[in-house]
Amino acid sequence: MAGAFNLSLVVAAIRLTTPILLAALGGLFTQQANVLNIALEGMMLSGAFAAVAISYFTHSWVLAILASMFVGLIMAWILGAFVVRFKALNVIAGMAVNLFASGFTAFLLRTFWVNKSEMTQGLVGIPDVSIPGLSNVPVLGELLSGYSLLVYVSILLIFIAQFVLYKTRLGLRIRAVGEAPQAAASLGVNPDRIRFISILISGVLCGLAGAHLSLGALCMFTENMTAGRGFMAMAVIFFGDAVPYKVAIGAFLFGLAEAISMRLQSVGLPSHFIIMIPYVFTVVSLIVVSINKMKAQVSKPSES
């Protein structure tokens, strides 16, 4: 039993963390702007499909990654238009985007590729990166080297997100709009514009997450292949209070839970409770966070 929890489990966990992490890093921008974005799942799925389709036609993984980000951007643009411009409730519009992505990618898949094997043959995947000099070191080599390119990109993006949010003007504006839209507006910031931008950022990163899923982790596209990872990302964002490094920790916990439950499944043990833990934890931490916020509000003198 103890043999199951070894180095390769951590490696598997890191692999499973990446798509959730990428989507969550995107979604935390909308969260910071106080826009509840439940469309992460759909934007991710569209990105996954775009990556595979472009890789199939052009045999270029670079173009495929760019395409996935572009399609994620377009889905986000649609979402942003309806939420920000046309005042649709973001939950409803987000749900519609998810439904559209799941339906339309499956539609395209079945229309243009009659059988799946035909499609997977022409695909060029995103290459694995082995870090020179590290790949031969016994433990560290296995732990740090040999992942798909986007795994490293996602880790880099944690720091970039942290920087953008807390050290740039855009980040300040996003946080300001999230915290007090009226106050931001009175200083000349257009809250709607900032909300729109944050939605677009989430779209690009979700597209990237999709590309990792379909061309990095696997080399194929299947219907609804995101399988709820967008919602996991949402849970992670709430878990980490939309702060990039906390979100990264949360994403790893989800990845670890997924890895453990896959191990358990392979030996026929019930894995359901393990995979449930992150969700339960998210609900509990959400409640704890709101209780703390309430206490803070009560102890502060009334602002109004």
Partner: peptide, 26 residues
């Protein structure tokens, strides 16, 4: 016909979007 049934899911999504939207700002 040869039209995959998932087309309908896409149409349903479009219906939801248009019902939820408020176009009075246009």
């Amino acid at each position: 016909t040869d039209v995959p049934k998932q087309l309908v899911d896409s149409l349903r999504a479009i219906i939801i979007l248009f019902v939820a939207a408020d176009f009075t700002g246009l």
